[in-house]
């Protein structure tokens, strides 16, 4: 998808909401899924199009933690830190990334709702379940194979 495609699709989303300020969060969701993260340029565009003061747009973008304001690293890991995962050893899993895969961007995330399969880590979008540190290392190494 080229940049012009992305711009057009974002424009369509904003148009569908009548460029109203109330649709800010919906628009930011679309912007992030199209561009990967909310760059200052993108926030400025949204603020102008929705006729909103910049500080309100940045205020909303920084309030919700699913909005990313910086480019994402090539490898993303989301360690679920819900209660079941926490008591099943999630903190040790977070440490695995720290020790073995330092270049991965590790986010300690909110409960994803698969508590029956705790502890769980989503590596580059693929959920890994019923993990132990050793199993996690093996799974990540498999993922990294070309």
């Amino acid at each position: 998808m080229t940049d012009t495609d992305r711009a057009q699709r974002l424009e369509r989303v904003m148009a569908r909401h009548g460029y109203s300020g109330d649709s800010l969060i919906e628009v930011l969701h679309s912007a992030q899924s199209l561009y990967g993260y909310l760059s200052p340029k993108l926030l400025a565009l949204v603020a102008t199009k929705l006729k909103l003061p910049p500080s309100r747009v940045v205020g909303v973008a920084t309030f919700y933690h699913l909005f990313a304001l910086a480019p994402k690293a090539p490898h993303q890991a989301m360690v679920c830190m819900g209660t079941a995962c926490h008591t099943a050893g999630a903190p040790e899993l977070a440490r695995v990334f720290h020790d073995y895969f330092p270049d991965w961007q590790v986010k300690v995330g909110r409960c994803v709702g698969c508590c029956g399969l705790a502890p769980m880590v989503i590596c580059d979008g693929k959920p890994q379940i019923r993990l132990t540190p050793e199993k996690l290392i093996r799974q990540v190494e498999d993922l990294l194979q070309p």
């Binding site: 209660t83 079941a84 926490h86 909110r110 409960c111 709702g113 508590c115």
Partner: peptide, 12 residues
């Protein structure tokens, strides 16, 4: 919104 950690009823 079901934000409680360890709750997955609404989602299911």
């Amino acid at each position: 919104d079901e934000g409680d950690p360890g709750a997955f009823m609404d989602r299911s």
